[in-house]
Design a binder for these strands. Sequence first.
DNA 1: CAATCGTGGCC
DNA 2: TGGCCAAGATT
Length: 314
Amino acid sequence: MEPEHKRKLHARINGWFAENARDLPWRDPECSPWGILVSEVMLQQTPVVRVLPVWHEWMERWPEPAALAAEPSGEAVRAWGRLGYPRRALRLHAAAAAITEVHGGKVPDTHAALLTLPGVGDYTAAAVASFAFGRRETVVDTNIRRVHARLITGNALPSQSLTAAEMRLADSLLPDADAEAVAWNASVMELGAMVCTARSPRCEECPVLSNCAWVQAGRPEPHYIPKGQAWHGTDRQVRGAMMAVLRQAEGPVLRELLLTGPVDLGAPAADSSLSPLGALHALSAPQEQLERALAGLLRDGLAELSDAGVRLPA
DNA sequence: CAATCGTGGCC
DNA sequence: TGGCCAAGATT
């Protein structure tokens, strides 16, 4: 791409960001690298509005990695609440331990070192290196991929999996200077999240509408049909319901209580479908599926067996 | 590369 | 109402 065109895109998108960016706490210049790392992990597949309250709780309770590492991993899982994908909490706890033991309590400041932390992949390593340490990193998330697909490539959606071509494109668009690159990363991501959205993009608000290859091509349909994520009747649904029971429980939960279908235990109130246990039983999952779900939780370290039953890791 | 892994709001 | 989707990582 011509340097002049590239420069124009930078100016327009960064200018839009300066006027329209959300005021998110992890964008505060005072936010610590730890706060930024926690936000990035929480934001993996979870919307900002749901992350906000939990992130504040975590920062107050565990202002630095060592504080989290000093507690059982089950506390991280419980404090994760309903953000989803609870093994992220487990990995964040493990990352805090590694930071404490291997990195002197400080979040590492290079992409390579960050990549060695549990739960930190290429995106998160680049995002933390860029946003927390001001490095020039090629940050590529689902928002940025979608903006590039439309603005440059002219497709409605990015390819189904991250390709080498996409990385090269992102590399070629990244400004040369560190600070410019950091601003560009944040700006394109925000544009994708707020304007160039997956469904019904708000093109009338787009600062680069006149440059958009997808719009100029007449907004062609996607080249493929995204496959939905099955939920009802799946192991994931059962795991989720089971985790809700364990999070809410004070201590161990009787194994039979988790694995048994609806049954009159003489305490009908406790089995209300409004309680986590009631919700689990209301699924009426086959015995085999319940056992498979529990085995999965134990294998993943999200739960453990004690004399008294099943509980979060202590 | 494709499957797996939560949760809830929105259209 | 129900499918779609969200700042991915791991196997």
